[in-house]
Design a protein around this nucleic acid. Structure first.
Lengths: 247, 247
DNA sequence: AGTGCGCCCTGACGTGGCGTGAGGGTCAAG
DNA sequence: CTTGACCCTCACGCCACGTCAGGGCGCACT
């Protein structure tokens, strides 16, 4: 194959192939007339280059990777699979952050600076990526929530927010009225809370609800949110949810 | 927040923030001493910039997007979600190609040039991406197959290939022997074919098997593969699979 | 035999998104 | 009042190409 054909097949410019030839990244054979000629081996190498480049490596890094004599083609493919998986996970993290930003925006809350760090603060994109996402991103609840809320309009969000605020205020009222978290009233409100989540985000079983309530205590963002509504509310909600799940 | 803090929080260099200031992409307030000062609004805009940049937009394109007065922040977030979904889908396509390359390599076959085009041939990565993947990438079968085969060794692949070749040859023999596709023998071979897929790739129900067989006719890569084994085999396999699914 | 027409070649300069100093002010701590 | 960690503004460098400029193949059509 000559340059034009390869460029068309791979979606590249001819100039790019010239460049890669010039820097020794992808050097084709040359016919008598000086034309570049790409054989099967070059096409396979091209595919490798495309994949590594897609992953954000510089040309000389790609060259170093491919010219490493200790690594054979199959090892490259496996490494590429890993890197792709990492990169996909990272993008899913970013998507999760954007998703949270949508929620925050819809509810009139601004994201904290440290939320930036959470996703964008990693310097080596090939390494760490899938941590927080690994905990939640693959769960059905996360997917369901994502699927459902992605179609929400601004008005939907306002309604959801109002409903949640209502439940929270009534929980705060119960707290300030001195009703124990194990009281029927508090348990009933916890159940309302669970059903609101089930309607608006994802099917939330009592067990998941308990796990969520525990996060209200362990994740300071949630804690801060509830504490802002009323002091001690995070703990109170947690206890009420647990009581409701048991009863 | 001043530049250093923002840079650290976002994982950027100070120079980058200087640059973004210079080109008007992200312009902070300036204190009396000339220091840059980033407020909440700038941090939110920074997050938008980071996301759009992650998606491969040029700085002026990002600027144009963010400065478009017709689009509010929420619409941006939604667009970013879509673009992220596309980009993720595209990377999954690349991953699928790499996966196929692993198979091909393990079985000693070289990929055809047009396979490059399949994934790498799109010029606008933000647009089309999720088409083929949208059809298959999200299915449980695809995920299951990916999960299962990713742990296959070279020997596993050779065995899988040998088994499939065996079934194909016996199907070809049945065809050349003049047995109709609706004959018990052909149906039994189709069933073997289905079970081989279920063992080696993903749980393949008779319905899925029929859909797969239809692809043997509609996707020329599959057609070519079967036609190379024996002329008319693609159609024959399709018919036998359909007969077996009905019976 | 000429003559388009499309593809190929090799320079060579331009560009976007920064990296990397040079040279110098600011500010809190010691 | 110095020291060191920040901050500022030029200004040049670099990488991975884009984009002409100037010219050679190869084949069809006249």
């Amino acid at each position: 194959m000559n340059v034009g054909e390869v460029a068309a097949a791979a979606g590249l410019s001819v100039r790019t192939l010239h460049h890669w030839d010039a820097v020794g990244l992808l050097v084709p054979h040359k016919a008598a007339n000086g034309y570049r000629d790409y054989g099967p081996a070059e096409l396979e190498r091209l595919r490798q280059v495309l994949t590594y480049r897609e992953l954000g490596f510089g040309l000389d890094q790609v060259k170093a990777l491919l010219d490493d004599p200790d690594v054979d083609a199959l090892a490259h493919l496996r490494r590429q699979q890993e890197l792709l998986a990492d990169r996909i996970a990272r993008l899913q993290d970013v998507a999760a952050l954007v998703h949270r930003a949508v929620e925050a925006k819809s509810m009139g809350i601004d994201l904290e600076p440290h939320e930036l760090r959470e996703v964008f603060g990693e310097q080596d994109p090939t390494q760490h990526a899938a941590e927080a996402h690994g905990r939640w991103g693959q769960t059905d609840a996360w997917k369901q929530s994502h699927a459902r809320t992605s179609s929400y309009s601004k008005q939907d969000w306002l309604r959801v927010q109002a409903e949640m605020a209502d439940v929270q205020e009534r929980l705060a009222a119960a707290l300030s009225a001195g009703l124990p978290a194990s009281s029927p009233e508090a348990q009933s409100l916890a159940e309302e809370h669970r059903q609101h989540i089930s309607r608006s985000y994802y099917d939330c079983s009592p067990e998941m609800h308990v796990a969520l309530a525990q996060m209200y205590l362990s994740d300071e963002r949630f804690t801060a949110h509830y504490e802002r509504v009323a002091p001690g509310l995070a703990q109170y909600v947690h206890d009420a949810v647990q009581a409701a799940a048991r009863g």
